[in-house]
């Protein structure tokens, strides 16, 4: 099955007049943890549902290992829907065995796998309880077990971290990292950007149904506009005003934050700063994923004001 890569290739979807996805394209490599971020309604869930075949795309296709995904190969995917779904009045153990069997496992394997995952996720002692009698946190663990119980070769998880307590977040993170380490593609969506930044190998940012940034976290951060922080006690206000490609972002006492445009020379800035007297701090700062995200996502409003001003997109889409 080729390189085991999950490819989302130019999928589009409209709901009536509303464009949900426009040529959305990205891929998740085998063994990679891919973070899928974007504001509510940007198209994350639609993308995932199309990947799982519960929704049909208007155009485009999803491939796994180079082959178009079918109902048969789709059974290799472990899926956690955004709106959690389990039978409320069915016992945890029976439910997991049932779902495993629905993905093609034999009765024996389904049982063994249910034992294994309820054990690993700390809900083994609740196997005999109806799902509706579990706390929300435990229901979430069972939901994750449901995504993993058939030993999937791809993981697609919609907001797996939402509503989890810190311990459960650690459990979930560990499981995702383990699965990626086993060599399967793992993609999940989240609004918890620090978590995404910490866990993911690569990140994709979607806005209004289009991928606006894809890349390694570091790569994205370096692609963002670089900032310089200069602390020069003797500098007069406006000392940096005349420098080519430099914009003053912030001036707070002796601390100045500058944004470097394309082609701006940070050494020239240093010279200018030194010319004013001593420089106690001179550092280059890279934006966090959160800042980057804000920047990318708020372009929507910029764009509305000045169509076509997608200044960062080219730079960020490495």
């Amino acid at each position: 099955m080729g390189d085991g890569r999950l490819e989302i290739d130019r999928i589009s979807k409209r709901y009536g007049d509303v464009v949900a996805l426009r040529d959305t394209t990205f891929d998740v490599r085998a063994g990679e943890l891919f973070g899928f971020v974007g504001s509510n309604g940007a198209g994350k869930t639609t993308t995932m549902r199309i990947t799982l075949g519960v929704l049909a795309a208007d155009s485009g296709e999803v491939r796994w290992g180079g082959e178009r995904i079918t109902l048969e190969t789709r059974r290799h995917i472990g899926y956690m829907p955004e709106e959690r779904g389990l039978y409320p009045k069915m016992k945890v153990g029976e439910q997991l065995i049932y779902l495993a069997r629905m993905h093609g496992l034999s009765a024996k394997d389904a049982k063994a796998s249910t034992e294994e995952w309820t054990e690993r996720l700390g809900v083994a002692h609740r196997q005999g309880d109806d799902v509706q009698n579990l706390s929300l946190g435990n229901q979430q663990r069972v939901q994750l077990a449901a995504a993993l119980v058939h030993n999937p070769s791809i993981l697609v998880l919609d907001e797996p971290f939402s509503g989890l307590d810190p311990i459960a977040v650690d459990v979930m993170s560990k499981v995702l990292l383990d699965k990626a380490a086993e060599g399967i593609p793992v993609v999940f969506s989240s609004h918890q950007l620090e978590l995404v930044e910490r866990l993911c190998d690569r990140v994709g940012i979607i806005r209004s149904g289009q991928m606006v940034a894809i890349g390694e976290v570091d790569e994205l951060r370096s692609g963002g506009a670089a900032e310089l922080v200069v602390v020069a006690p003797n500098a007069a206000p406006g000392w940096a005003a005349g420098l080519a490609g430099v914009t003053v972002r912030e001036q707070d006492g002796d601390r100045t934050v500058l944004e470097l445009g394309d082609g701006a020379d940070d050494q020239a800035v240093l010279h200018a700063a030194l010319a004013t007297g001593p420089v106690t701090e001179f550092s280059r700062q890279r934006p966090s994923l959160t800042e980057l995200y804000r920047e990318v996502v708020t372009q929507e409003t910029d764009e509305d004001a000045a169509p076509g001003a997608e200044r960062n997109e080219a730079g960020v889409t490495a």
């Binding site: 109902l71 995917i77 959690r84 389990l86 779902l99 629905m102």
Partner: peptide, 17 residues
């Protein structure tokens, strides 16, 4: 409706028709 309201149908339809 139980499957619909509990949303388990989404999980089921990702593996069967």
């Amino acid at each position: 409706v139980e499957e619909k309201s509990s949303r388990v149908v989404e999980l089921l339809l990702s593996t069967i028709r």
